[in-house]
Design a protein around this nucleic acid. Sequence first.
DNA 1: AGGCAGGCGCTCC
DNA 2: GGAGCGCCTGCC
Length: 272
Amino acid sequence: MKTITPSQFDLEQIADSGQCFRWNRISDYKYRIVAFGKILNIEQDLETGSVTMDCSDSDFDNIWKDYFDLGTDYGKIIERIPEDDEYLKRAASICDGIRIIKQDPWETLITFIISQRKNIPAIKASVEKICKAAGKVIGEIDGEKLYAFPTPKELAALSESDLSACSLGYRAAYIYKAAHAVADGAVDLDKWKELSDDKLFDSLCSLYGVGKKVANCTMLFGFNRLDSFPIDVWMNKIRDRYYPNDFPIEAYRPYGGIMQQYMFAYERSINS
DNA sequence: AGGCAGGCGCTCC
DNA sequence: GGAGCGCCTGCC
């Protein structure tokens, strides 16, 4: 067990922000997360804000501390919001419990390829199916097996029809090609970590089935490129309504992606 | 029952 | 280089 009291940390806001598709809500402010081949039960006390994780000290130090981006001071980032950006200031004041979760690049790439033209429950269902079809069993809860996200080789072992059985639709071909490119070594995601933002963006977009939205999400959530600014239908709506001269993304540097998350989460919250 | 959901590739111009 | 269109699937 490990208990911490981080600032700017709200489990529910993070869970609803659409970054991670393997967080399962157990009850209010209580989740089971599968990531990096591990299962983490996590709970937040609303009174004190303290967060309790059922993990060893070493797993906390080696995995979860980084995963939850606990070394970043989001309060300081919020202070950088341009004074006249009323919409963003409001969004950040409401959604200031969001953090950018540092996920595995491979898993992020695949899950965001799956995400295109799907809603969140459908994305989660497909992700669980590919984990079950190709991933290792890492635990069992109430007779239900839990699976790790498959490695590139494990995923590449599936045929296109195996993938189609995971409700991927036309994305099955995208996943198939991506899995083979990474498993064969034609694409080396570890090497991609060294690339500049521009080069990484171009490399991601060169993958079949990856366009700028998916590339930006993969960069933001899988490569911790905090300036990546994904634009989806919600962001288009926000721009149309509140930013007639477009988003001042230069003013958001180098944290455009965090600003995007506040706006995205806020707009969704007021429309639900 | 028909449109649409956190897009992308392809095919035109 | 950009607008238009088809696409798997599940869900309301």
